[in-house]
Design a protein around this nucleic acid. Structure first.
Lengths: 182, 182
DNA sequence: GTTTGATAGTTAGATAATCTAATTAAAAGG
DNA sequence: CCTTTTAATTAGATTATCTAACTATCAAAC
């Protein structure tokens, strides 16, 4: 009797649950000083956040670069004139200097950036984009921006306006909490 | 003359730029069929998403578990009765079976889950939570929910209402795009 | 009933992004 | 000069992924 079903669905598959069972779980397992509505909304925001990063990852993959490395390249682009040291980049990216070193190794191996010793202070290194790096960024950015924009296509004009206000507010408050700045 | 300054700020530090220079960059580097307002909003959403995941990571760290492993445990919790195979878990989590194997190895080593061979089909394995696993989840969840909720504390009641509608809409559309379900 | 193909799980081996702790070199400050 | 601090790197680890290959089992076809 279950044979027909088997052609459509794998009986071992876990069914899609949606958000409802999570709401029930919140009711039984959240602390009394947690607002349950907020927990639910926060969970949905967490899911959305996961997906937003997945979308970017997927779209950048064909270029052979990841979001974190592109972030570093963007930082160098925007600070054009100013000379950037690995330490300063690490600080601004919120990672350790050791992590910055390995990202820079990767980027330098592909000729996207170069390291130059400072002449005033020989402990320091200044990182800059190569012409190849600039060309690469110019190739990637249109996809990057369209990928960012693509997540919002279903919103109506007035919804976008409201959403921007809310995202901006949340961004400020979460950055304050995490003590990071962009 | 620059000595005083040095005690306050490191002259090598890259200044905080905020969103403005990114907007200028969008203007010069986005494709003509990209809505520039959307690109900007999408970028802010990307930043917010990064931070949302950081907040959760930070709060889960003291428990020695990561969000992806907790996701797996939550799936087992919510599907309580139903027997979950590694394949089914992998499919629902959007990872490969190989990745599921290593997560399960980790969880089993810490006695949070057990693997049992199916008797009907000896290729299959059923994964279930141990009592220890259930206890662990009960300990983690209050923090997990409060951490989710904490991202929204600065919103006003009416803002939350609007935000929920928007997040829900975006979640639906991004899940359709990524062909994932929760 | 034996072969052949699909399925379930694992293993092997790789990459990426991160960390901490130790190391090296140089500068700065007494 | 000696000591401390700073900058960058290295060494070594963990986590989360992946693909490809392998093993065992089941199922279906002939």
């Amino acid at each position: 009797m279950t044979k027909l079903k088997k052609t459509y669905t794998n009986e071992d598959d876990l069914p899609v649950l949606g958000v409802e069972p999570y709401i029930e779980l919140i009711q039984t397992s959240s602390s009394s000083d947690t607002n349950q509505e907020d927990a639910k909304l926060g969970l949905m925001l967490l899911w959305l956040s996961d997906h937003v990063l997945d979308v970017i990852d997927n779209e950048l993959a064909p270029f052979g670069i990841t979001e974190s490395k592109l972030d570093l390249l963007l930082l160098l682009t925007l600070h054009g004139e100013r000379r950037a040291t690995p330490s300063a980049l690490a600080k601004r990216l919120g990672i350790t200097r050791a992590s910055a070193t390995s990202m820079l190794d990767w980027l330098e191996k592909r000729n996207l950036v170069v390291r130059n010793h400072s002449k005033e202070d020989r402990r320091k290194i200044y990182v800059s984009l190569t012409d190849e790096g600039r060309t690469f960024i110019a190739e990637v950015l249109p996809t990057y921006w369209s990928s960012c924009a693509s997540n919002l296509i279903d919103l109506e004009p007035d919804e976008r306006k409201v959403f921007e206000k809310l995202v901006s507010k949340l961004l400020t408050s979460i950055q304050r909490k995490l003590k990071v700045e962009r």
